[in-house]
């Protein structure tokens, strides 16, 4: 038996919106301590990893580990039934064939229920090595979104360079070339802060198209954390207050 109730259901709605363009079918792992999922996009370039702790739920019960195979496209359609102020409850029996999703609005007394059919997914689970990232950049999520969006109109690829003084996003395309450079900024206004933690500088190139997809999660978190290592994929991380973390991994583009 699994049951989890989230008071701020909008968070779950936003999570589904933030992953539905990247992954199609996903195995959701239920454990007594929380909910997690890991899935790659069809081209194996990007990976979504979500971890939600039971502590963030108003009510959480999972007697055993369970795997719930879900079509994210269909889950997104069901989530559209939810009002932004709804509480969301997820329920599944042992050996479940469907996931029951309940939306409740205590103010308007409206309740919506949907039984989403589960599917069997043969997915490859990748073991992600523990990595000490040599550059970690914490940046306002709205600002990072905007930078990626605007640069994409100029080039398909961005080169991210880090050093102890700044992080630089540079592009080169038919239109010309240029860069946005952000220095370390720990100003009193928290939302303006850009925090650089660089032990070794990194220079890598990435497809901006994917970054734009990841940035749909910027409504979940005021800050985006970019974790870089010269020999490793980029991690774009969105912390979800009191609940968990949504991470995206992106393989770099490599020069011939």
């Amino acid at each position: 038996m699994f049951e989890a109730k989230l008071t701020e259901g909008l968070i779950l709605k936003k999570i589904v919106e933030s992953i539905k363009d990247i992954v199609t079918d996903v195995n959701i792992d239920i454990s007594p301590s929380g909910i997690s999922l890991q899935a790659m996009d069809s081209s194996h370039v990007a990976l979504v990893s979500l971890n939600l702790s039971m502590d963030g739920f108003e009510h959480y019960r999972a007697d055993t580990n369970m795997v719930l195979g879900v079509s994210i496209a269909n889950l997104a359609k069901v989530m559209k039934l939810a009002d932004n102020n709804d509480q969301i409850t997820l329920q599944a029996d042992q050996e479940a064939t469907h996931l029951k999703i309940i939306f409740e609005n205590p103010k308007t007394e409206r309740t919506t229920e949907f039984n989403l059919n589960l599917i069997t997914i043969d997915s490859e689970h990748l073991a992600i090595p523990e990595t000490e990232y040599s550059s970690v950049v914490t940046i306002n999520s709205g600002e990072f979104s905007k930078i990626c969006k605007e640069l994409f109109s100029l080039s398909e690829t961005v080169q991210i360079t880090t050093n102890t003084d700044y992080v630089q996003f540079s592009v080169e395309g038919e239109v010309g070339s240029g860069q946005v450079r952000l220095g370390h900024n720990d100003s009193e206004k928290k939302e303006d802060q850009t925090i650089l933690e660089v032990s070794e500088s990194v220079q890598q190139q990435f497809a901006i198209r994917y970054l734009n997809m990841f940035n749909k999660a910027s409504t979940l978190s005021s800050f985006t954390r970019l974790c870089l290592h010269q020999e490793q994929p980029l991690v774009v991380e969105f912390k979800i207050d009191n609940l968990g973390v949504l991470k995206y991994f992106l393989a770099p583009k490599i020069s011939d």
Binding site: H44, A127, A251
Partner: peptide, 14 residues
């Protein structure tokens, strides 16, 4: 010219 790498090159199949 750049080529897009795949995650499989970095992560092991678990």
């Amino acid at each position: 010219k750049t080529n897009q790498a795949r995650l499989d090159c970095f992560f092991n199949q678990g």
